[in-house]
Nucleic acid binder design. Sequence first.
DNA 1: GCCGTTTTCGGCCCGACTGTTTTCAGTCG
Length: 555
Amino acid sequence: MTNREVAKTLDNIADILQIKDENPFKVRAYRQAANSIYGLDENINYLYKKGLLGDIPGVGKAIQAKIEELLDKGNLEYYDALLQEVPQGVLDILTIPGIGHKTVQILFAKLGIIDINELLQAALNQKIRTLPGIGAKTECAIINGIEMLKENKHYTLGLVLPIAEELLAHLKESEQVLNAALVGSIRRGKPLVSDIDILVSAEDEAGVRYNTANFRAVKQIINSEAGHIEGLLQYNIPFEVIIVADKDYYKSLLRTTGSKDHIKHLQILNNRDAAKDYQSEYQVYSFYNLDYIPPELREDQGEIEAAAEDSLPQLVNEDDIQGDLHVHSNWSDGSGKIAEIAQMADSLNYSYIAITDHSRSLPISGGLNEERLMAQGQEIDQLNAADNRIKILKGTEADILKDGSLDFSAETLREMDIVIGSIHSNFRLEKEKQTDRIVQAMKNENVDIIGHLSGRLLNRRPAYELDYDRILDEASKNRVILEMNSHPDRLDIDAELARKAREYNIKIAINSDAHHKQDLKLIKYGLMNARRGWLEKKDVVNTWSWEEIKAYIKK
DNA sequence: GCCGTTTTCGGCCCGACTGTTTTCAGTCG
């Protein structure tokens, strides 16, 4: 069992206990343990073997025993019994925006609704509005919410990529496999993907078949015919393994990477049969008289024309990244000490890192008031004095309040090396008001970066209404940096807007928004998205030295 | 259910917004 699966189980237990209206502190205990496990650096099986489960914050005797049972037997009696009372389908209802545990409890108790489909039927029949405390508006919100969820038949790249990489590594271990790669939308770095596609070249298909079926996360093989294996992985993620002869590998690599529009456009360009033995994708593109096109650009958005004219962008690379400008510590809702985060940043060869904890209007996240912010600054000064391998920057992720002001005084903000302004409340203002609010923040001379601009949460919450032309115009005028938030649930701003921002000469910061030190590595998702937005090194401020950034943000 | 330079009990982040009400409960961050 993986860390994620253990954490998810504890989270589900918390949900069921909350629906059953049990002691809220007990609920929180399960949630905290789950959160700790989500953020662990180590494999939980390893910790169990070493007898270190009890060292995980929030894991006491009772939860430790439950984790051990899970890891030993693959299931947990306590949890199975809870599921008898409150089935999984009831928990799924919690994913509908605006529906919490109390509402789920009422739906379950009064109408016996046990899954999303039954809920939709009841809502369409106007039965929900008859329940105590629930009216027509909520009923409508339920219908809209379910429709939104049904449209989202896609998985976030953050969920799928680690499993895909594991399956790829597993296949590569086998002797029969000559070449193998992730292909399809994963290779193109799309934030949401519908399945995992892997291309394999092999002389012996039977060996590949055997190996695929033996991968630990394979739930079911649906189809297995010549050149092709199809099935389901954990979380019901569909996967496909495409097997070709080695001489066809690079041609197939291009074809299976897609996108469909990109391939179609290529074929119109040159309809001759490219039945050659290519040694690389570069060679395939040169057959079409084109420069090599990186997978992230292959969406038929002008990349083929650019490749023909030798004017493709030199996309930003992982090696270019010099630091991270948005990281939370245990001073607010992060889990790591500043010193540990700095150490991790050093191991990633960064030269600077900004500690940007929440501000006071986010009390649930332990937002800092002026006094604590200053105290944090002193700790950072001490750390910088003790160790100069990495520069720790003093920052804040200050809330943009409803009227566009920030909840720190100008005086306090001036003390900071870097200030991110972000919205964490009032998501549903009308378009003009929401835009005014952000423009107001951008005009604030102390704001350097706007964090997660659109507020979208993939598969969960749509972006809020904004006039993006006006935003880009003002960002450019006020020399405000826009954040490319790397969290795979956000990837905000999206690639399309990033590309547009580039036209306005707006600079982008690819930030991790890490809440655990391990999350610093999430930057790879932001990088993929930045590349999909055609961004080059010069567009991305955290490819620059801190001195260069400082000179840029000094307005 | 966890945790403890107040350790075996008694605490354990909260404030704004929304919808349903007519003073409040539920949700969200």
